[in-house]
Structure formats: structure tokens, C-alpha cells
Computed example of a mutant assay.
Amino acid sequence: MREIVFDTETTGLNPSGGDRIVEIGCVEIYNRVETGRHFHAYFNPEREIPTEAEAVHGLTTIFLSDKPRFSEKAEELLEFIADAPLIAHNASFDFGFLNFELERCGLPAVCISRMVDTLALARSRHPGAKHSLDALCVRFGIDRSQRIKHGALLDAQLLAQVYVELTGGRQIGLGLVADTKSVAVDPAAGPVTARELRPPRPHAPAEEELERHRAFIAQLVDPLWDRFAAVC
């Protein structure tokens, strides 16, 4: 199953109030395994970057001034995500900004039914714990040492690992031989020797064995089982 894990960085918290997406990072996973394919872009928001937002992601007005506008990369983004489910942390925030930008370009919004929220998953699996991306990386032993500031692509890559852990871990696709009804043979392992099946061996004692056993028992003095037999 193909899924897309994504994250956005923005100028603020409210798209209807004029805030815009300045960065998006998307990571492709297939059957819970990263394929190595990703989509990443910075955008010129056509407005100043507030100091508070710059402190979070480190993206400045000057840095973004020569970057493409969202409308210039929108078709490429839609082609990459295609019809896959979209996974994000606190997904309603990212979906709100993504759909605002798409509608601003005259493109159809992404259906909310495609949204998978890892924040909701984390709250369900670990109620009462901390559920930030940093906290979940610590919980699952995921290396976040490069996360000095928020970055859409890096955060999407970290979230992809968190999502795998929240949905069963790395063994989620493990198939047992008993399930497949077949065994794969490695040609490099050398020739396979076919063995002839032997008939089952008889396990009942022969009469002479029973006789020797009775003679041995008769030599025992005051055997323990005689005491229990007398009580019964």
C-alpha cells in the first residue's frame, strides 16, 4: 500500500488570516517501508516572515524571496501524492494549509477522508504521555539529532519512522512460511538433497523387555508405590 507522509512549515497558524505555506516535505512509503522517493520544495509566500515563525523553522524572507510560488509547484506536488493516503502530525493543521493553497490556485482540495493523523494515533496508543514529534522519537528510539529547527522534509522523514512504530513496527509485513504454503530455495546455497521418508518406528516394548522390567522391579525392597497402594 502506497502512503505519503508529509509536513509543512508556514508563516503562522491561520491561512484564512493571510498565513502561507513556505515549505513542504513529502516522503513515500510502501507497505510501511520508505522507498527513497520524496517531494520537497520551498515557496515564496509573497509576504514577510514573522519573527516568531522564523524562530521555529529558520526560514527568512530573504531566503524565500527567489523561491517559486506555491502555484508554480502545485501540479508537481499533486502528481507526487496522487491518490495515496496522506499522513501528518496534527494533520488538520497541515491539511488546512494545503487545501487553502490548492483552492487559491483554483485546484480541487484534497479529500479529508485521505487524512491520517499520527497525533490522534499516538494519543490512542499512549494516553497521558507526551505526543510531540520529539517525544515520540525518544519513545521509539529514533535518532533526531539533526533536528535543530523544524524542517518539513526532515520532520516528514522522522514522522515516517514514528508512523511505522505506531502501526505495528518493522515486522508489520512479516509473512511466515506456514502462511505462504511454500519455501523459497536460494540457488546459491548449493544442491538440495531429497530425503526418503522413513516409516514410523514402533514404540511399544517387546515382551522380553517387559519381562526384564518385571524382574528388576521384583528386586526392589519396600518400593515407594507400595506404600501409596496400601493407603488407597
Rank of each mutant, 00 (worst) to 15 (best):
R123P: 02
S124L: 13
S124A: 15
H126I: 13
A129P: 04
A129F: 05
A129K: 11
K130G: 05
K130C: 04
H131L: 10
L133P: 00
A135M: 13
A135L: 10
A135C: 11
C137P: 02
V138N: 12
V138R: 12
V138A: 14
R139F: 08
F140K: 03
G141T: 10
G141V: 12
G141L: 06
I142F: 01
I142G: 09
I142H: 01
D143N: 14
R144W: 13
S145K: 15
Q146T: 12
Q146D: 09
K149F: 15
K149M: 06
H150K: 05
H150S: 05
A152N: 03
A152D: 07
A152P: 08
L153N: 04
L154T: 01
L154E: 03
D155C: 11
D155H: 08
A156S: 15
A156C: 09
Q157M: 11
Q157N: 06
Q157I: 02
L159Q: 00
L159S: 02
A160R: 02
A160M: 05
Q161E: 14
V162I: 03
L166A: 01
L166V: 03
G168R: 04
G168L: 09
G169N: 06
G169S: 12
R170K: 11
R170Q: 07
R170S: 14
R170A: 10
R170C: 08
R170T: 13
I172Q: 07
I172V: 14
I172D: 04
G173E: 15
G173V: 13
G173A: 12
L174R: 14
V177C: 04
A178M: 05
D179T: 06
S182H: 07
S182N: 09
V183D: 02
V183F: 12
A184F: 02
D186I: 14
P187M: 05
P187A: 15
A188Y: 09
A188W: 06
A188H: 12
